[in-house]
Each structure stands twice: as structure tokens, then as C-alpha cells.
Design a protein around this nucleic acid. Structure first.
Length: 578
RNA sequence: GCGCCCAUAGCUCAGAGGAUUAGAGCAGCCGCCUUCUAAGCGGCAGGUCGUUGGUUCGAGUCCAACUGGGCGCGCCA
């Protein structure tokens, strides 16, 4: 249960019961910034007083006595310009604790998404080589976002768009053909400009040589290009899938650009736009201040994206008459919508930022405003090792790959660290730091809290029968023995989890989960240490079995919430850290 | 030149238009292990929320301009 949504409904009902017919959707019910102000804070009076023809404080005073009589409310106060703050009794928090224990790691699951379909497209790295660390960030952000939306009750499809139709896969084919000739004993010398240099293609060329022998030697490119390209793309996708697998990421759908092109999807999409009068032939102004060397005015086929707030209209055909990448992307996003997605989320690298407006324009036009598209731009990842920057020379083909990083520090560390910044902030990733076992390291810190909780449960198992301390039994236990203010505060914090999930899902901000978990872990570590100072506050007090079981309930609930959050992030909760 | 993103403590960053007192972590200083993992915790100190205006009963949060940084800017994807 999202307790704030619960009180929102209760308060709305009381407003209706007072005889007001007001739109309560603008009313927010939230935790007050200062806990001293209570547990729940509503701005109802400020938002609604005008419609009721009253002053905010007057409205609040009228509502206050009714809210004071609600179940579990011990105090209702009017504060400041007209906030109504509610303080809740401990019984309310004991009920939440029981709820967490019954739900387990499913706590926080919501039906708020109402089964509405969401397509999350992420990674979509060109199938020309192994993934690098920047791709890894997008992969984690997209995957966690998908998990979050799923937890919210959305039907989520995780999708990878394979750019297998452009010039870069031809360059790939030529590069592989070169390595293939090399594998068959030819001396190829310097790799020509425009081809891929990476050593990983040596193996790909050798595999092709083993499979097809000398079949592609001595014949014109027109004969070998297509088959070698198909082979190379398959090989590269296999490479990428293996990299993703290391991170525990699997996609539901791989969408092929080439297939769309072949099916005539571009022509169809452009025809639709044409029908709306959004396609025309025109000449673009040169970009000011940054003039390309060979600039000359040229009439082009353009999409009128300025009609939807873009800065200039965008070309959909190249000079040679072939479609631009943008044209294919138009078809692709229309295809997504036609496959039944009302909402689309694309996770891109920040270098694609200039592309966002035109994509939104297209989706807007093609779906007549019925579909939404949100683009999450991920900023750069700066790799370093003990403070020294790690060079990532892609040109030399020996750059640090995602695989290198995951193999060195582990999947869990990579996934968590990628979410310790908002997606639009650059992220520093230091090898030495992220494997450090200290409170410097948020991954470790959160894992340590979970491991500590499991350790307590293991210890407790020595004093209790297993059936006395399972979650279901603990949930029925005498929870009202929890009386320490910090214990109640932890329950209160755990009870914020459903709201945290809903907020992060609505805002498409998975990093909030990582920050929330860090806060929960901090509270738990603090509580643990109170047991060091005062043995009476330790979780396991052998002489007081009922009190111990009440505290074990709290410990177990904390572990469940952490596990629930780590599941969204895709990190395995640690049973112990040794 | 134009567009997008960013600017919060010495450093790295959170912050869902709300109320006196803007929060974490690191770094600094002072404390806490005969005790479930001290791989941790408590305390002190540290801020004109880049600048200037505007909207509002109320702005770190919304709007505008400016300053500084990142990314991008027809026939790459």
C-alpha cells in the first residue's frame, strides 16, 4: 500500500463529505520535509480553498476535525499557510510492518500502471563490435527502468533496435572480408580508412574462413558483400548478446532496421506524413558559425518538424536519393506504435541529444498525439583506476570494453554504480573505488546492510525454531513491542518504498531506487550500532523472546525492502560478505 | 551563431511548487569494539542553492536574460 495514496483518498472522501464538489486531483499528500511536522502532509486547503470560496486556513480548519477522526490519526494540525499535517499512531506502522512481511520482495508492487503498455528501447548499439562502457550505462538505466515500470503494473517490452541497414554495416562487411583474406594467408597491410580496426574482427574473419573456405576470394565485392555482411552482423550481435548476458540483461525484441526497410515501412511512413502535408522539398539554411567545408545549398526532401517545435526541418533523403537514418527511425517508431505501444521510452547517449525534438515531432505526427515518447539521455562515463584516467582509444581498436569492466568488478557493482547518478549527469567510474569494501562504496554499503540482516536471522535461528521466525509468523508476532523511536522511524522509512517506486517509475528515474536503498541501509546500520552502545537494543536479546521476534520482524522487513529494490536494479542481494 | 543538458558544502552528488532549520557521502576535527561483521556508528564544523530579474500567498524547484561547463548542429548512425 502506498500510504500517501491511501490518505489522499481518505482526505478526498472527507472533502466530499463536507459537501464540496472539488477536483482533488491537484491535491498532493506527501511526507513533510521535516519529520517533526508529522507523518503525512496535505496541501488540500491551498489548492482547493479558492474553489470552495474560502481562505486556505479557513478551509483547513473546517477539514481538520474530520481528518483527526480518521483511523490511526492521533493529531491533525493546520500549519503555515494551510497545510494539514497528520500524525499517525504506532499501530499504523505495525500494520505496515506486517504488510511488508507478508509481501516479501514483492513489496512495492503496484497496479498503478494498469497494464498500460510501455516499450523501452535501450542499448541499440550498432552491430559492429563489442559494447563499451557508455553502452553499459544505457543498458543498466534502460533495464532498471523497464523493471521499475513492470513493478508499477505496466506491460513492458524491452527492445533493441538493430541498425543493420546503414553504411556502417557495409564497412563492417569490408573489414571482416579483409580479416578473412588475412586468415587465408594474404598480407593485407594497413587497414584502410573507414574500416573497423578492432582486433576482435581477426577472429570473426577466421571463423568465416573456416566456415566458407575460399568461396569469397577473387570474386567482386558485389557478390560477397551481402553474405559476408549478414554473417558479420550475426557474429557481432552474438558478441553483444554475450556482453549483455554478463550484465544479466535480456531483450524481448530485437528489431531489425533492414527488415523494416525491405518491408517498405519507410515509404509507408513517409506517405502517411506526406498525406498530412508534412513532407516537402526545400533548401535548408547553412548552420551558422559551424559551416561544413563543402557546404552548398541543395534542395532536399524534408520533414516539417518545425510544426512540432523543432528548430529546423529535417532531411529524410540523402543527396543520392537514398533514405537518411532519420527516415528509417521514423518508420521504426511508427512500427512500434502500430505494435500496440501507447508509451515509448528511448534511452540514448547524450551525443544524440540533438535528435530528440525531431523524434518527438514524428511520433506526435504519426500517432496524432496519442502516443508519448520520452527520451532519456545518458551522459558520459569517465573511467579511471585509482584516480588515473583510463584511456579509451576506439580508433586503435583496443578500447576498454564493457566486458573488461564487468569481468573485473562484477555485474552487481557495475549495475549499482551506473545508477548512483542521475542519467543526465556524467558519471565517474573508478575501478579501484567501486570494489572497495567501505562505506565509500554505495554498492557495498547496501549489500552489507542486507548481509547483516541475514546474519542476524541466521543467529536467531540458533535460538528459535525455523517456524517461529519465518516471515509469515513474524508478521503475526507481537509487533507492538517495537517501541524505540529509531525502530519506528525505520518502519516509517520502509513504508515509503511503494511511494518511492511509483515516483521513480512515473518520472522515469531509476537512480532514485539506488539512493533510497542507501538511505535505508544507513538507518539500519545506525540501529545496529545502537545495539553496540546499549545491549538492551540489540536485535537478539536472548532473555526476551517476544521482543526479539518483534525486532526480527523489523530486520526481516528491511531485508525484504532492500531485496525488492535490488531486484529492480538487477543486483543480487548478498547473504554474507566475507 | 543556434539547440539540448548541467551549475546546490572544500570534493562527489541527492532534492515530486510549499511552512522556522536545503540534505547524504568523502575530505577535516572529536568520540564509540571484553558485545549479532568497527567492512560500521555518533557528534562538531562546513551553504549569498552560478548571476540578475520575473510569476506566486510561497521558488534550489516554474519563466526570462546573462555567465560558465558538456553534447550536438544537411548528404554518420
Amino acid at each position: 500500500m502506498n500510504l500517501f495514496a491511501y490518505f489522499h483518498d481518505k482526505i478526498a472522501a472527507e472533502i466530499a463529505a463536507l459537501g464540496f464538489d472539488l477536483d482533488t486531483s491537484r491535491m498532493s499528500v506527501e511526507p513533510p520535509r521535516d519529520p517533526a511536522h508529522g507523518d503525512v502532509s496535505a496541501n488540500a486547503a491551498m489548492v482547493l480553498a479558492k474553489g470552495a470560496g474560502m481562505k486556505p486556513r479557513e478551509f483547513a480548519e473546517k477539514l481538520r476535525p474530520r481528518l483527526a477522526r480518521l483511523d490511526h490519526v492521533i493529531v491533525a494540525e493546520v500549519a503555515g499557510p494551510g497545510f494539514i499535517n497528520l500524525k499517525l499512531d504506532n499501530a499504523f506502522w505495525y500494520a505496515r510492518l506486517g504488510e511488508i512481511l507478508r509481501a516479501g520482495p514483492a513489496y512495492g508492487d503496484s497496479t498503478a500502471g494498469q497494464g498500460r503498455t510501455v516499450n523501452v528501447e535501450y542499448v541499440s548499439a550498432n552491430p559492429t563490435g563489442p559494447m563499451h562502457v557508455g553502452h553499459g550505462r544505457g543498458a543498466v538505466v534502460g533495464d532498471a527502468l523497464a523493471a521499475l515500470l513492470h513493478k508499477m503494473g505496466h506491460v513492458v517490452v524491452r527492445e533493441y533496435y538493430v541498425n543493420d541497414a546503414g553504411a556502417q554495416v557495409d564497412a563492417l562487411a569490408r573489414s571482416v572480408h579483409l580479416r578473412y583474406r588475412q586468415a587465408l594467408g594474404e598480407t593485407v597491410g594497413e587497414i584502410p580508412d573507414g574500416l573497423y580496426l578492432g582486433d576482435y574482427l581477426i577472429e570473426t574473419g577466421a571463423v568465416l574462413a573456416r566456415r566458407d573456405g575460399k568461396k569469397w576470394l577473387g570474386c567482386p565485392e558485389s557478390e560477397w558483400l551481402a553474405p559476408v555482411r549478414d554473417f558479420a552482423i550475426e557474429e557481432m550481435l552474438a558478441l553483444i548478446r554475450a556482453d549483455l548476458d554478463l550484465l544479466g540483461i535480456a531483450f524481448d525484441v530485437f528489431s531489425s532496421e533492414r527488415r523494416l526497410v525491405r518491408a517498405g515501412a519507410i515509404e509507408q511512413a513517409i506517405a502517411e506524413l506526406e498525406q498530412q502535408g508534412l513532407i516537402y522539398i526545400g533548401t535548408l539554411e547553412p548552420p551558422k558559425g559551424m559551416l561544413p567545408e563543402d557546404w552548398e545549398p541543395r534542395p532536399q526532401t524534408l520533414f516539417r518538424s518545425t510544426a512540432f517545435g523543432d528548430d529546423v526541418d529535417r532531411p529524410i533523403k540523402k543527396a543520392d536519393g537514398s533514405w537518411t537514418y532519420f527516415a528509417a527511425d521514423i518508420a521504426y517508431h511508427w512500427d512500434k506504435h502500430k505494435r500496440g505501444f501507447a508509451d515509448m521510452i528511448d534511452v540514448w547517449g547524450a551525443d544524440h541529444g540533438g535528435y530528440v525534438k525531431r523524434m518527438q515531432a514524428v511520433v506526435n505526427a504519426l500517432t496524432h498525439g496519442k502516443a508519448t515518447i520520452d527520451v532519456k539521455l545518458c551522459q558520459l562515463v569517465n573511467l579511471s583506476d585509482g584516480g588515473q584516467p583510463v584511456r579509451m582509444s576506439k580508433r586503435a581498436g583496443n578500447f576498454v570494453t564493457l566486458r573488461d569492466v564487468v569481468e573485473r568488478v562484477g555485474k552487481d557493482v557495475v549495475r549499482f554504480v551506473m545508477l548512483t547518478r542521475r542519467n543526465d549527469q556524467t558519471l565517474d567510474f573508478d575501478f579501484a573505488k567501486v570494489v572497495e569494501q567501505s562505506k565509500d562504496n554505495p554498492v557495498f554499503y547496501v549489500q552489507y546492510a542486507h548481509a547483516r540482516a541475514r546474519s542476524v536471522m541466521r543467529l536467531a535461528a540458533q535460538h528459535f525454531g525455523a517456524n517461529e521466525i519465518d516471515a509469515a509468523t513474524l508478521s503475526r508476532g507481537p509487533l507492538d513491542l517495537l517501541a524505540d523511536a529509531d525502530e519506528i522511524a525505520l518502519v516509517r522509512q520502509l513504508a515509503q518504498w511503494p511511494r518511492t517506486v511509483e515516483g521513480a517509475a512515473q518520472m522515469h528515474e531509476p537512480h532514485r531506487i539506488a539512493f533510497y536503498l542507501h538511505e535505508v541501509a544507513a538507518s539500519f546500520h545506525a540501529l545496529w550500532n545502537k545495539g553496540n552502545a546499549d545491549p538492551g537494543l540489540r536485535f537478539v536479546v536472548e532473555s526476551k523472546r517476544d521482543l526479539t521476534r518483534a525486532r526480527l520482524a523489523l530486520v526481516q522487513a528491511m531485508a525484504f525492502v532492500v531485496a525488492s529494490g535490488l531486484k529492480v536494479i538487477g543486483v543480487t542481494p548478498a547473504e554474507e560478505l566475507r
